[in-house]
Computed example of a mutant assay.
Amino acid sequence: MQQQTAGHDPATGPADRATRSDLTPPLPDLFEAALRRLRLEGAVFLRAEYREPWAYESLPGPATAHILRPGTDRVILFHVVAGGTCWVQVGDQEKHWASAGDVIVLPYGDQHSMGGIGESETVPIMTFMPAPPWPRMPLLRAGADGDLTDVVCGYLHSDDVLFDPSLRVFPSAFVVRPSGAAGAAWVRANVDYALAQADVAPFGPDAIPTRLPEMLLVEVLRQHLATAPAVDQGWLAALHDPVLNPALSALHAAPERKWTVTDLARVAAVSRSGFDDRFRQVLGRSPIRYLTEWRMHLAQDLLASTDLGVAAVARRVGYDAEEAFSRAFKRTYGKAPGLWRGDHALRRP
């Protein structure tokens, strides 16, 4: 059977950063700011050897997240194809093909299927994956006795708005290839190191001491954002929209300001009604609701990653009264800011 050609976004590896401007268009400032702001925690968590023909369906997203990072309901998944050819599919969406060196990304950790070139019955992953907890990184084997596809899988966790499923900045699944020999070698070296460490380290969020998940994802997202085709709705569309982009840039630059729809429309140089209609059409929410959601996201970040008091965090995100901020935060996340911080503060060395 003729091998499928992998459909993917050409990616830029970290070793090629110096020449990125020659390879891809520049990102809008908000994209670059979003990538610089990302805080990610994760690990390489399993490796797999699949032989043709083969196909499986993963666990639902929340169940996968519970295994990999208890207490969360979603994680970012990625699969590095070390050898062979495979496809990935979310629901009844299109299949994305990947081959050796490609990186498959599932930014919302959705339930998905994967398979090889040959026709095969799709089986649940738990028919061949050992039940957790795992004392060591599992090695999965599935399929028959045909050609081999090697896959190394990792996950990341982030509360960042980029990975908010309601905004759907990214497609449910996409494939990227690190460009050039240097980029591919960098990915391969990090994967090899992670696998070597897996033989001696117990499984856990910090089991594999490599920055591969974080560094790889940021590079893949940068390339995907720079080369993604135009879309009509969502955050990606809004940041490319000549009306919404200036307003969002101003809002993100000064979230503490007492913004009104009239203020934002003035920044966008359109009428208030025209701006409000356009905002709702593209982002599916009112400008003020978006502002509130963005403030709550920033508050999460400050509570988790700084020692600022709750009152100071409230002021940073536009609330004069700590009580009003605490009510808004609890309404959004179900806990008062102080209690939420106790559960989510980032570990410090």
Rank of each mutant, 00 (worst) to 15 (best):
W235C: 11
D263I: 13
L59I: 00
V90H: 09
G13V: 05
G318S: 12
F174S: 09
L23P: 07
A196K: 12
G83S: 13
R74I: 00
Q233A: 08
Q223P: 03
R141F: 00
P242E: 00
C153S: 15
G143E: 04
G338V: 07
A345H: 08
S158P: 11
F174I: 10
A34W: 03
G183N: 08
P132Q: 08
G13S: 04
R347K: 05
A34T: 02
D110K: 02
R348A: 13
E322Q: 14
A82G: 15
H157S: 15
V175E: 02
Q111M: 09
A207S: 15
P28F: 00
T72W: 01
D263N: 15
A189H: 08
V175S: 08
A100H: 04
F78N: 03
L217H: 01
P62A: 11
P124R: 13
A230M: 11
H112P: 03
M296F: 05
V75C: 03
L35S: 05
S273A: 15
A184S: 14
G334D: 06
V103Q: 02
H252V: 14
S113I: 00
L195G: 06
P171N: 11
H79Y: 13
A65M: 03
R278K: 12
G109H: 04
Q281E: 11
R51K: 06
T227S: 10
L251F: 05
Y290D: 10
L162D: 08
I104G: 00
K258S: 12
D199P: 00
P349G: 12
G91C: 03
P209A: 10
L40S: 03
A269V: 02
L30W: 01
L212W: 01
V313Q: 04
A18D: 12
L308D: 06
P242R: 01
R289D: 12
G274W: 14
F170C: 10
G338T: 09
V310H: 01
Q281F: 03
E119Q: 14
L35D: 10
V90R: 11
R316G: 02
W134F: 07
A43P: 00
G84C: 04
D277I: 13
A247G: 14
A230H: 13
Y193I: 07
P28A: 01
G334H: 08
V313Y: 06
D320L: 13
G180S: 07
M114L: 09
M215C: 01
P209R: 08
D301E: 15
D150G: 06
R295I: 04
A237R: 12
D159W: 06
G342I: 05
E119V: 13
M114N: 11
M215D: 08
F203Y: 05
V90E: 01
P135F: 10
L140Q: 05
D206V: 02
